[in-house]
């Protein structure tokens, strides 16, 4: 008799989120699949004080790219051809989550055998979401300033650290 063969639906510790893969953060410090968008922040190549806030909506693949000061990106300039920031954002997302998860979230059908997300994207333009996404990035950074704790936190038994090399 082997124990521990319960169905996914009836497991308290059923895994839901796959651990993210490590990636370099200097160029794209922040990527997330949230609010129905792939969105994130891309460092400017020329100015350390400036970042670009880029997003692609799920479903209709609307593109948006602006600086954190709300200036439109010259590369995208309101069009439907992705700028370098959006390409870097998508590359970072694929590195972090894997192509399958990004494609599923954006509702993209990538042709069989292809590893190019863009080959399945039929891009449109989308409204500027820079302010929201940038606020999300600041919230993300703020986690690094939350003090550590030695409270017992019993609920963390539901969140095992996984991902050992098999």
């Amino acid at each position: 008799m082997t124990s521990g063969s319960a169905a996914y639906e009836r497991r308290s510790a059923a895994p839901v989120i796959a651990p993210v893969r490590p990636r370099k953060l200097a160029k794209v410090p922040f990527v997330e699949l949230a609010e129905g968008r792939l969105q994130g922040v891309v460092s400017s190549g020329s100015d350390v004080e400036r970042v670009y806030v880029s997003s692609i909506t799920a479903g209709d693949h609307g593109l948006s790219c602006n600086t954190n000061n709300n200036r439109p990106c010259g590369g995208l300039s309101g069009g439907t051809r992705a700028c370098n920031h959006l390409r870097a954002l998508a590359d970072a997302a694929v590195a972090q989550y894997g192509l399958d998860r990004v494609a599923r979230y954006l509702k993209v059908t990538v042709p069989d055998g292809s590893d190019d997300l863009w080959s399945g994207l039929h891009t449109t333009t989308a409204p500027n979401r820079a302010a929201e996404v940038f606020a999300g990035f600041l919230r993300h950074l703020a986690y690094l300033e939350v003090p550590s704790t030695t409270e017992p936190l019993p609920d963390l038994h539901w969140f095992p650290a996984a991902g050992a090399v098999s």
Binding site: Y143, L144, T150, L153, L156
Partner: peptide, 9 residues
């Protein structure tokens, strides 16, 4: 136990 806040990356 000791716990820290972090981000996914």
């Amino acid at each position: 136990s000791v716990a820290a806040a972090k981000v996914d990356t």
